[in-house]
């Protein structure tokens, strides 16, 4: 498989997984959140998570940051479409940033080798 096909195929699979997540991902808390709910007495270790369970976060003296697309969505008004846009943007951004930095590092390596050879 050539590079072009591999990249297109890989990105397509990643986007399909991400879009699938918008519709089919479980709404249950993840392992860390579940543990926090157990510790805070809102959930038993092996039982289901109550629908009204909420993690109490003590933000006193802690850093606070508002991300532009919290919870992989663009807000309730955009619905699932907002989720799809957020996931696709994130997937392409993760791809682009890693691609860009990797290319810079390889170019830097090549340049250093050429300079070494010329000396």
């Amino acid at each position: 498989m050539d590079n072009r096909t591999f990249i297109i195929g890989g990105i397509a699979i990643a986007i399909l997984i991400g879009v699938g997540a918008v519709f089919f991902a479980s709404g249950d808390p993840d392992g860390l959140e579940s543990t926090a709910l157990v510790i805070q007495g809102q959930k038993s270790l092996t039982g289901d998570t109550p629908p009204d369970a909420e993690i109490h976060e003590d933000t006193t003296g802690k850093f606070s940051f508002e991300s532009p697309m919290p919870d992989y969505s663009l807000g309730e008004q955009f619905g699932p479409l907002g989720g799809i846009i957020a996931i696709v943007a994130g997937t392409l951004l993760a791809f682009g940033i890693v691609l860009g930095i990797s290319k810079v590092l390889v170019a830097y390596k090549k340049k250093a080798k050429t300079a070494e050879a010329n000396q």
Partner: peptide
């Protein structure tokens, strides 16, 4: 490497 990053990002969003 770049495709792995994209795949890991997408898979991490799928609970």
């Amino acid at each position: 490497i770049a495709v792995l990053a994209a795949g890991i990002f997408a898979l991490q969003s799928f609970n």
